[in-house]
Amino acid sequence: MKVITAYCNLRAGECLVNGEVVARRDTGSEDSWFKQIYKQHELAYPKFYKMDVLSQAGYLASELIKRANPGISEVYADDEIALVFANASSSAETDRRFIQSYQGGGSPSPSLFVYTLPNIVLGEIAILNKWYGENMFAVLPKFVPGFYLDYSRILLASGSRALLCGWLEVTAGSTDVFLFMVEEKEKGTEFNEENLLHLSQTGAVAAY
């Protein structure tokens, strides 16, 4: 059976792993919300500071999922974990910042430009973990469980043994991040439409 073995919800005010709050935003802090999580969880990856918001969100959520689910990397070969991510606004927030870098007298910033693609976050996660598996980034109007269910079925039937999936919507006004790990297990929270919708919305484990 395909099971959701760990998940992380990252919203404007709090960050949850497997339904438990692991960080709350300190609105009085000078640090960005993502930097607060990075520091609170004593993560050590200086490249984090160079990433755009999508990559920061993907990095944080995937690292927190790995901590809750230790040993993922050892269980699978380096090309057996596929990454399937999606969002609604592509890399619009970083695109806006890149445009700002060259409008009004400045020069286009190369380090912003390289993040003006939504799939860069997949590259960041692949680099950090040395994962050589399948990658896909889709742009959809909203979070639709069917998209992940359909494509996961294809990948799991063609060489991938586990999936790290994500909905990664980070704009100036909102943060809606939901990452989840899908693996083959005998029991657990079944990977189906109802559970996905539930976990994405409430951040609480389904009551059964």
């Binding site: 606004s89 619009a92 695109d95 799939n119 980034f137 889709a138 109007p141 998209f147």
Partner: peptide, 29 residues
């Protein structure tokens, strides 16, 4: 439209060709 780079086109295509499903955008560089 910086903030919605695909939505409008997908809707327009769906409408014009009377598609049953909204197109899916794949954006992997």
């Amino acid at each position: 439209n910086l903030h919605d780079q695909f939505g409008e086109t997908c809707s327009a295509v769906m409408q014009q060709f009377n598609l049953a499903h909204l197109p899916i955008v794949i954006s992997n560089a």
